[in-house]
Nucleic acid binder design. Structure first.
Lengths: 147, 147
DNA sequence: ATAAAGTCTACTGAAGTTATAAAGTTTTGA
DNA sequence: TCAAAACTTTATAACTTCAGTAGACTTTAT
């Protein structure tokens, strides 16, 4: 039931990009790494994976950097986590995106499977229902409420 | 976001015990391993951990075996998973049972944390709200419905 | 040209997962 | 008694994943 560092760093970096990217601009990896306290070389691999998955765009050379491939309200946390950590489901036989049969003789009446399906749906509802824009909004609300 | 084999086998074994234990009786490990297709030596480690955590009792000698330490409606899946796989929370800074601070400068306004707290609560609601008796009941319902 | 920035591949040490093996202890039926 | 059945404990090993490093290469603004 754990999110890997890879997944955590990726989510933080994407949220950072959503908040910090100037209009039509680009953010260098080093800036993200510094702000979010992520080892730069590790972040490289992570952003590369997100780029290959079509969630990020990049610009090479001086003044280059990364930017979201789509507006922040069209990128969900579920998409990001699936790229970096694989399926959301706790066991493969309840995964929608990466189903695999399990050992039990009859899936339809497997008690464990029924419960884990509930768990996977609960997780997916939250992660697929939350966009980077939603995250930014919640941070704003939390900041105001604390005053 | 994954349940280990250890956790999966443990849950299956506990559900098996809830369904198969005769009143006041005991089930030998070998029977569970055979029915649930679990390597016996691996299952030994798992049941031992559950016993040390106070979820199982055992009886030695000929005719010995394992039994639930409490009635099936007083053992939740959350208790079992925590023993075998650790905290339910996707990241430690939202764990109730094993909290640890994360790197972010201010937890109260960390967007990732707010979302992951929702996820951990969703998982915990299901797993802590489902007992072995509930699982057995759902299996019954599924069997009847399929006809 | 050159320095800043991203791209890509490969590697590594540590930890965790999934077992298997061996030896030891307790209980109990015959 | 005594030996089989069952649980207990420790050790080990193959395999995979995780987290991070290293280094060579490409692109681009100036």
């Amino acid at each position: 039931m754990k999110l890997s560092k890879r997944g955590e760093y990726g989510l933080r970096a994407m949220a950072d990009l959503a908040a910090q990217t100037p209009l039509g601009g680009v953010v260098p990896l080093k800036d993200i790494a510094q702000r979010e306290q992520i080892p730069a070389k590790f972040l490289e691999q992570i952003l590369l994976a997100l780029k290959n998955a079509g969630l990020l765009g990049s610009k090479m050379g001086i003044g280059g950097g990364y930017h979201l491939a789509r507006p922040a309200d069209q990128i969900t946390l579920g998409q990001i986590v699936r790229v970096l950590d694989g399926p959301l489901a706790p066991i493969r036989c309840v995964s929608k995106m990466a189903y695999e049969p399990c050992a039990c003789p009859d899936e339809a009446t497997c008690g464990l499977r029924l419960v884990m399906l509930d768990v996977r749906n609960a997780i997916a509802d939250i992660l697929d229902g939350t966009t980077l824009a939603d995250v930014a909004h919640r941070v704003e609300v939390a900041r105001i409420e604390r005053r």
